[in-house]
Design a protein around this nucleic acid. Structure first.
Lengths: 204, 204
DNA sequence: CCTCCGATCTACTCGCGGGTAACCTTCATG
DNA sequence: CATGAAGGTTACCCGCGAGTAGATCGGAGG
């Protein structure tokens, strides 16, 4: 009555979908394979036909979700003219993603993955990539290490705002939030340019 | 041979100390009570003489560590004259705490606690308090909800920077980092004042 | 209608880890 | 040197959840 016998590929996709939700809510350790199977309307062995292990499934999820988020940001900032626009559109794309995919946000940044060495490197890879997109907006006069740290700080900026908004439970206007947060971020980024005064010369 | 029979109070303190380290490294689920007992040089039942359960122990840790961090920041910013100084000294106290207590940082922000409803509210309480200290630095012209979100974003700013620094493994100069990050933060905070132009009137 | 194959389920194994009952050890004290 | 209380240990119970072996179902092709 529930699962009308899907093809292997379709079942795999469905499991991934459902697992994002379940893991997103309960975390890696809080959700059992049985929970996920039940939520998908099947039984455990079906999961193991598509994924070698619980951690394998989780890895796949992190990869897919991380790629989706980064792609959304990359696409939005693809043809930006200046740093300000890139900052605004980047944050906008990010908060839109959070707003419509609470579960995906929780999966990546809910924290379940952060510890386990196995997953933490995967999460780090994602945040590293996000930071790499931000780093060029910071003055070159600064020590590269500090620049990286600042870039990661700005990733945290978005994460901190999102955590609160998602935690509140109710929906929010991502564009509103993006305007406010990116306003703060861009002002901060420009301040890093004061040293060599390059902030005055932006085109557009 | 190792643990020369401590008094109950001393043992309790030692367990807390050791548990910060073990949980900080492995996370709540990654560390077993046996691990902690072994690290403390005792056996499991001793833990249960001092704490009702694993979660009880963890709760106690979060409380102690959270209070310690907030107290450090509060003390540093107790007699500040203006927002800029408060921002600088607050971040400085925070990054000093991170620099000398990697394990405590990992315990609070490593992510283990973030999911489990039981602990997540405790973590949230801590970040809420930190955000409450930041919120007054943001213009009153903004919607209170947005102000709260911005405050939490700035908490995330510090967290994001710390996560990278701690993740690198090597030591860092907290005052250096604090200068850079608080510079960005303060510039961002001032930008929120542009709306009503109140940024010009600061004393000092 | 048979049959074969892939999707699915029932019904297990098994180890890990939280938690505990009962016993041992050390030492201050009369 | 008895004694008892506080600190500690050994050796266990037990449930949960990851992972699996083997039976069952259901539809496409002969």
């Amino acid at each position: 009555m529930n699962a009308p016998r899907l093809s292997a590929d379709a079942r795999r996709e469905q499991i991934l979908d459902v697992a994002i939700d379940v893991f997103g809510r309960a975390g890696y350790f809080g959700a059992s394979m049985n929970d996920i199977a039940e939520a998908a309307g099947v039984t455990k062995p079906v999961l193991y036909q598509h994924f070698d292990s619980k951690s394998d499934l989780y890895r796949a999820l992190l990869e897919e979700v991380g790629a989706r988020m980064l792609a959304a940001i990359a696409k939005a900032t693809a043809n930006c003219h200046d740093g300000k626009e890139q900052t605004e559109l980047g944050f906008q794309a990010y908060f839109r993603w959070v707003a419509q995919r609470h579960d995906e946000f929780m999966l990546l940044f809910g924290g379940s993955a952060r510890h386990d060495g196995e997953f933490s490197s995967q999460i780090r890879q994602i945040t590293d990539e996000a930071a790499a997109a931000i780093a060029p907006l910071i003055t070159v006069d600064i020590d590269p290490e500090q620049r990286q740290t600042l870039a990661h700080a700005l990733v945290g900026l978005a994460e901190g705002a999102s955590r609160r908004l998602v935690g509140l439970g109710k929906d929010f206007d991502p564009d509103d939030v993006a305007r406010t947060v990116s306003g703060l971020a861009w002002a901060g980024l420009r301040a890093t340019h004061r040293v060599n005064g390059s902030s005055a010369g932006h085109p557009g």
